[in-house]
């Protein structure tokens, strides 16, 4: 564990909590892409299957349970509890355009052709594109509420910090995970455009529609 990874995990947790609290407090999921949240729940489900088979550390186990619980809670709030405020009109990104290439790639590029490894690889590739429906929705509605931009900021920051973590681990322990690094860089690149808007335009973001 290093400071970059810890900061990354904290940033990730903060992002998830920001979104969950926003929906819970405002009793509405307007402007939130339910499709992205379903994809994130799928990412955690396919990545944390080793929760019951491999014990790495208390931190690792606790964080996996927390991420799974919070992501399913978010999906539940969007599609069940506050479904009447779900903006299905604008949440129309074709997720099959993400799932099919990701499934194909995870069968082609993986460390081992075993169910657990392929599902882990699937979750790594899927995570890099899971935010697309949300970014698509923002361009479609032409705006993002300030809290949503904070959510996206911390979500983008988390994977950027993981890149620093991979550089650090490469130099200190010779560790590198090629699939995670390539996918993590792609994921962070998707946020660059948003980071620019977030920094230059402050909280409210209006995308040039």
């Amino acid at each position: 564990m290093n400071i970059f990874r810890l900061a990354g995990d904290v940033s990730h947790l903060v992002a998830i909590l920001i979104l969950l609290m926003k929906i819970w407090r405002s009793k509405s999921c307007a402007g939130i892409s339910g499709r992205s949240q379903v994809l994130f729940a799928l990412v955690f489900t396919t990545r944390y299957l080793d929760l019951f088979t491999v014990y790495i550390s208390a931190y690792n186990t606790v964080m996996k349970v927390v991420f799974l619980a919070l992501s399913y809670a978010t999906v539940y709030l969007i599609y069940m509890r506050f479904r009447n405020s779900y903006d299905s009109e604008n949440d129309t990104f074709r997720v099959e355009f993400l799932l099919i290439p990701v499934i194909g790639l995870s069968f082609l590029e993986n460390y081992a052709f075993t169910p657990l490894e392929i599902l882990w690889t699937f979750s790594i590739f899927l995570e890099s594109v899971a935010i697309m429906p949300q970014l698509f929705m923002i361009t479609k509605t032409g705006e993002a509420e300030s809290i949503t931009t904070h959510y996206l900021f911390f979500l983008g920051l988390y994977r950027a910090l993981y890149i620093a973590n991979w550089v650090w681990r490469y130099h200190t322990e010779g560790f590198y995970d090629q699939i995670a690094i390539v996918s993590g860089v792609v994921q962070t690149i998707f946020y660059c455009d948003f980071f620019y808007l977030y920094v230059t335009r402050g909280e409210e973001i209006r995308t040039p529609s």
Partner: peptide, 10 residues
């Protein structure tokens, strides 16, 4: 350098 497959990262 090795591709560690130990999934210790979240």
């Amino acid at each position: 350098l090795q591709d560690s497959h130990l999934k210790d990262e979240l």
